[in-house]
């Protein structure tokens, strides 16, 4: 009986219309806004920045491709933009003088161990770029903490250059705020210009591609926790503003902690996640052995995300009402 009419219509479950957002569109918007800190890094570190960015991106895409091929998945997913973001983010977290081979290893680890072994896009627990960086930090600790000054700064001895946070932690030297804002300081590629990172982050916030709770929660909690310490002893502890603008905090808060896959699904979860990151950043920077702690803070809180999702289910409309 059914054979009588050949279906000329497309059958599908409702709804039958979709809005214009798509995964690659979101990803490429993030890539677009990342171009701001990328531009800053190229301005301040010239060839070093270009070299690291290129190697990181190429090896990220290549690893993604090889794994997709091995797992018999659709290889066109290489260009969904997610591996590109990982490549750029990884490059932005690396010191400008890092050897090319290290960058390549980092990119491989980021995609292979950070993403593909979990099942690829959407299934990873940790931010892949930070997994790559954490691996490099553990594998090549000296190289990862050796900083090169920006090309535009005339420094006599290039060998012993400290980041603004390292300078404060080990020798109590503060970098000028003006340099922090523009980015004329030592540090990893993306730790340079605070202003450009904030602009990029605001664009993403405006487009609603990142959860506003996360950067707001992180920055506020770092400000509050460090502010409390500073009020207690302004000699020993840095000004909270200095903590906001120095190091990788802004890049982490706007571009890494907000990674959709590895951040909580629920609003309450996002708040806890963000405040947790802020707290850990202050804890590691002030009391830890390292001057910077954004990477570990985000990775640690990433591991809590499944738990947060589980225990912060939002109240359903009408929940708790009496029948």
């Amino acid at each position: 009986m059914k054979k009588q009419y050949a279906s000329e219509f497309v059958l599908s479950s409702s709804p039958h219309i979709r809005n214009k957002e798509s995964v690659p569109k979101i990803m490429y918007w993030v890539v677009g806004t990342l171009m701001l800190p990328v531009a800053a890094s190229i301005y301040f570190f010239r060839m070093n920045a270009i070299r690291i960015l290129l190697i990181s991106i190429i090896f990220s895409l290549l690893t993604e491709f090889v794994f997709l091929l091995a797992r018999k998945k659709d290889t066109s997913a290489v260009f969904d933009g997610s591996a590109l973001i990982t490549g750029i983010l990884l490059a932005l977290t690396l010191p400008p003088g890092l050897k090319s081979s290290y960058v390549a290893i980092g990119a491989f680890v980021a995609i292979a161990l950070g993403k593909q072994v979990f099942g690829g896009l959407g299934y990873n627990i940790f931010n892949p770029a930070l997994v790559g960086r954490a691996f490099l930090q553990a594998a090549f600790p000296v190289a990862m903490t050796t900083w090169v000054p920006p090309v535009v700064q005339k420094v006599v001895d290039a060998k012993t250059f400290a980041t603004p946070l390292g300078g404060f932690k080990f020798s109590h030297v503060l970098a000028p705020y003006k340099d922090l804002l523009i980015g004329n300081t030592g540090g990893s590629l993306g730790e340079t210009s605070a202003i450009l990172i904030i602009i990029g982050g605001l664009v993403l916030l405006f487009k609603k591609y990142i959860d506003w709770r996360i950067p707001v929660g992180i920055l506020t909690s770092v400000f509050v926790f460090e502010g409390a310490l500073w009020l207690a002893n302004s000699e020993k502890f840095a000004n909270p503003l200095y903590f906001l603008f120095a190091g990788g905090l802004l890049l982490g808060a706007f571009f890494m902690a907000t990674d959709m896959v590895t951040s909580p699904l629920t609003p309450k979860g996002s708040w806890i996640y963000a405040i947790g990151i802020g707290f850990l950043v202050v804890l590691i920077r002030v009391f830890g052995g390292l001057p910077e702690g954004v990477m570990y803070s985000i990775l640690i809180m990433n591991s809590f995300v499944p738990l947060l999702n589980r225990y912060t289910r939002p109240k359903i409309l009408g929940e708790g009402g009496k029948k």
């Binding site: 290290y102 161990l113 691996f135 553990a138 594998a139 090549f140 190289a143």
Partner: peptide, 15 residues
Amino acid sequence: WDNWMVMILPPGAFL
């Protein structure tokens, strides 16, 4: 060869 320090550290064992 640059030693991958992480491999002889505990995380390397897990990896």
